[in-house]
Amino acid sequence: MQFIIAFLLSIVLMAADHYGQILGSLRSVLLTTLTPIERAATFPQQIYNLITTDFSSINTLERENQQLKTEMLLLKAKQQQVINLELQVQRLESLLGTTGKITNQNVQIATVTFYSSNPLSQFLTLNKGNLDNVKKQQTVIDSQGIMGQIIQTTPTTSRVLLITDPEHQIPVRVQRTGQRGILSGTGHDNTQLGFIPVNSAIREGDILESSGLGGIFPAGYPVAIITQIETQGDNPYFRITATPIAKLNQSHKVLIINQQEDENWNNDFDFDLDFNLKSQKDASSKGKEP
């Protein structure tokens, strides 16, 4: 009798979870319960990292420091170019009389606390949740490109479905030609680009960036690089394999993007890119004034 009840309950639960969104809060409760267990599971790895870090030589740290300083210098130089480009775009837009505007985006820094490299699912757990204003469907990026989107949140953590997960899809365009397509995860650190006709001018090495269609992912972020293009008999579409640009298995610090301006988005660790750009722009324009 107990088996029949458990069996039926499981089927009802599966149907409710698959066909409706009513179990989102239940999953959130379960994930909250699992948070300390996930932390306990990463404990041996943390100890290992701590020990290996303690034994790393001063030379390595100095080299790493030097590398970071160089990288920061390059990024600052690029940021100056971005400010100039933004001003140019605004000037051109005013000449054309269009109302286009570079999207303002707030970002929030988060740390990866848990991850899954299982054949069933590929996700990350971040140390920011509802209490930090993290919401479902927010995009997560690293220094290289898009990693995935938030699919579940608890008060203190959130779960990110990686772009390589077989259930994940993202609208993209080829950076070089503007050709649009849908990038689907295939598992094991690879993705597949669909709906690209065989007469398209696409080649290996092309970079795919988010197209912004659908309104979930912001446009213009690099997503993947094409590594293999195959034709399949009479199939009118290519079979295209692409490797994610973001370091899905290596990134420790990531950025959660919020496309909409939110007044409550206040956190000590928040970094408002737009504010930073504006303040630098103001400073530079003041300096140019006679």
Partner: peptide, 12 residues
């Protein structure tokens, strides 16, 4: 919940 699979599947 841990494996991010449909709720109830592993339970079954």
């Amino acid at each position: 919940a841990l494996y991010q699979t449909t709720l109830g599947a592993h339970a079954l």
